[in-house]
Each structure stands twice: as C-alpha cells, then as structure tokens.
C-alpha cells in the first residue's frame, strides 16, 4: 500500500460563519442567576420607592447640593486618579526595579482596606495633626478635613487603585511590538507613550476611569471619616445614610437619584467608548 502524503495545502482562508451570541447552556444558568442577584435589589428599591412623595423629597435643595457635590468630587477624583494613576500603572507594568511587586501590593492596598480604615489612615497622614498634614497646617493654616478638597482626596485614595489595576493590566497585555515599531520610525519615548501606547490601551483607560468614577461616586466610609459631614462635604451617599436614620422613604428616593444619574452617565459612556473594543 502506498502511503501518499499531500503537502500542497489549501492556502485560501476558509470563511467560517461565526456563531455569535449563542451561549453554551452551562454558562447560561449561572449568568441568569447573576443577573437576578444583581438586579433584584434594584427592582426592590423601585417597587418600594415613595413615588408620590418623590417630588417633595427631591425638591429639597440639600439634595441637589449633595448631588452636585457628588458628581463634581467624583469627577475631580477621577481626573486626579488618571493624571497620577496612569503613569503609576505604566511604572508598575514596565519598570524592572527590585521591590516593585511589593510596591504594587502596597499601592493597591486601598482595594482591600475597609474604607473607614482608609479614612482614619488619611487623617493620620493629612489631618491637622497628621504626619504630612501638620506641616501644611502649621505653615498655611489649611487642613484638608471637613473641606471639599478632603472629599476629593478621600475619593481619590479609595478609587485610584481601581484605575491603576485596570490600566496596569492593559499596559502589561499591550503588544510592545508596536512600541518597537514606533522607535524604529524615529519616535522618542514620550512620543511613543503618547501616540502609540496610550491610544492602544484606550478602551482600558476608559474602562478604568469609569470604574474609578463609579467607585468615587459611591464612596462613603473614607469620605465620612476624613472629610466629615457639613454642607461642603455632604455627598449623596452620606445624605442617603443620614436620611435613612430618620426617613427611609427619603433614603430610597435619594438612592434612586444617585442610581439614575450613574446609569445615565455609564450608558452614555458605554455607547461612546466601551462598545468599540480594541482595534485590531
């Protein structure tokens, strides 16, 4: 019998129609449970919402003040996290220093730290009597606690690790071949970072920023501990907490407002940015 091996191979790409969106059923069941688990509390809130008294509760000017402060401080915290966190993420992903893994664990510590503990730590560092804060206070008479700046600092402290972890992963996964290509085309390191590396991880930058913003918007523990509660520092979560002390209906109403605003912002961002995955 002659064993004949054909070596000529078909080189034309075979056009397979991909079955998109058809999910193997073993995945479908846990996915459905997950949806149920995540959505039922939200639905429950909608069901129990004091719809008739809603306008009365929301007409309260402190609610609008709290909402404005929440959006403003969460956005400021996101900008701060981006400006400081993206370079940090780059360093953690690319630098080859000894002890970097320890540093990585340390800077992402706020992820596991109870936020109230984070707030206490911030007080010990940046409070009027803090390690750093005392020098600033003695020099300028300014102390971060009980100010809007304090809110931004607390939110940044808690939310920045979310951005750093997301972006670091993207830097790590990014194909460094493109950076090499840019180098051979005469681009300086800074140009490569700006024109190649950053755009390549664009979707992760957006995802990390959104995550960071969402975390900052919901921040309660560190903020109440570090920045306290006064008209300059009362964000929505604090307003919700206090409302819950006396009037559960008001708490639900405020929570709905916070949810609605978050959903609008996140959906708008998703449509604009997140839908387009990484090109290529």
């Amino acid at each position: 019998m002659v064993r004949v091996v054909r070596v000529e191979r078909s080189t034309g790409s075979i056009d397979r129609t991909r079955e998109r969106g058809t999910m193997p059923w073993p995945l479908g069941i846990p996915a459905a449970v997950a949806v149920f688990f995540l959505l039922v509390p939200l639905v429950a809130m909608l069901v129990r919402a004091p719809w008739s008294g809603l306008t009365r509760i929301l007409a309260n000017s402190t609610v609008l003040d709290a909402l404005r402060l929440s959006l403003l401080s969460a956005s400021a915290a996101t900008v701060a996290s981006f400006v400081l966190g993206v370079p940090l993420a780059w360093m953690l992903a690319r630098a080859r220093w000894r002890g970097l893994s320890v540093l990585r664990a340390l800077v992402t510590l706020p992820l596991v730290l109870p936020p109230v503990v984070g707030g206490v730590a911030l007080l010990l560092a940046f409070g009027r009597n803090g390690v750093v804060g005392k020098a600033i206070y003695d020099w300028t008479g300014f102390a971060l606690p009980f100010t809007t700046w304090g809110v931004v600092v607390a939110e940044t402290f808690v939310a920045m690790p979310f951005l750093v972890v997301t972006v670091e992963g993207a830097f790590r996964a990014a194909d460094q071949g493109f950076e090499e290509a840019a180098a051979t085309l005469g681009a300086s390191r800074m140009t490569i970072f700006r024109r190649v590396t950053l755009p390549l991880i664009g979707p992760s930058l957006v995802a990390g920023s959104v995550l960071c913003w969402a975390r900052a918007l919901g921040e309660f523990g560190a903020t109440i501990t570090f920045a306290g509660n006064n008209p300059d520092t009362q964000t929505m979560p604090i307003a919700v907490y206090l409302a819950n002390e006396s009037d559960t209906d008001a708490a639900i109403a405020l929570s709905l407002v916070l949810l609605l605003v978050s959903v609008v912002v996140l959906v708008a961002l998703r449509d604009r940015w997140l839908r387009q995955g990484p090109a290529l």
Partner: peptide, 28 residues
Amino acid sequence: PADRPVGLVFQNYRLFPHLDVLDNVAFA
C-alpha cells in the same frame, strides 16, 4: 533605535491599529 537611519519592516508589519493608513505612513 529612534536615532538610527534604519527602516525595519516587521514580520507581521506591526501597523498601528489605531491610526489609518495615511497616519501610519505619516508617523515617522
């Protein structure tokens, strides 16, 4: 590399996926 007058065409071309063809060529 950035200062070498050396052009390198990579095996998988490594065209920048976020730039169109014109801006890829205009990159250098």
